[in-house]
Amino acid sequence: MTPCYAHDTCGEEHILRPPRSKTWPSHSHQLKIRRKQPVEALETPGLRSIFNGLVKRWRDETWHFSSLRKRISHPDYLKIIGMGTPAIPWILEELRKEPDYWFAALEGITREDPAPHTDGANRVRDAWLAWGERRGY
């Protein structure tokens, strides 16, 4: 107990600092919340269903093109790249179940290239799937 400076004339004694509230989060807990928030938001079913919709429309509108460049410059493909890291496991899943030209998207998001001088699409696909396994996807 210390004298009350605000009431130096009142003669009362007060606790200078109130005891820390048990419900107030500690600093480390706050940090934990900050780290978790974006992941929780991105893992919502909404984003996954947006991804699925983009994939379906991209396939429907571009499957018949002979030009890979035309396919990977389609707005929906670019939107998928724009989803960033959360889309990686979903793209790898697509690559496993219905192989397609996901290499530019994966390279764009990860800035990695596990098959730099490879011609065959299947070989590039295998390299990306192996990359995914190494990274725990």
């Binding site: 002979s66 030009s67 890979l68 460049r69 030209y101 290499f103 098959a115 011609d119 065959g120 590039v124």
Partner: peptide
């Protein structure tokens, strides 16, 4: 099959995509 395209198939190839792009030939 995404391993080749109409141009390579027109020339009898079914293992490569003929285009100057990544994963192609």
């Amino acid at each position: 099959d995404f391993n080749y395209n109409c141009l390579s198939w027109a020339l009898g190839c079914n293992t490569l995509v003929f285009e100057n792009s990544k994963g192609a030939f």
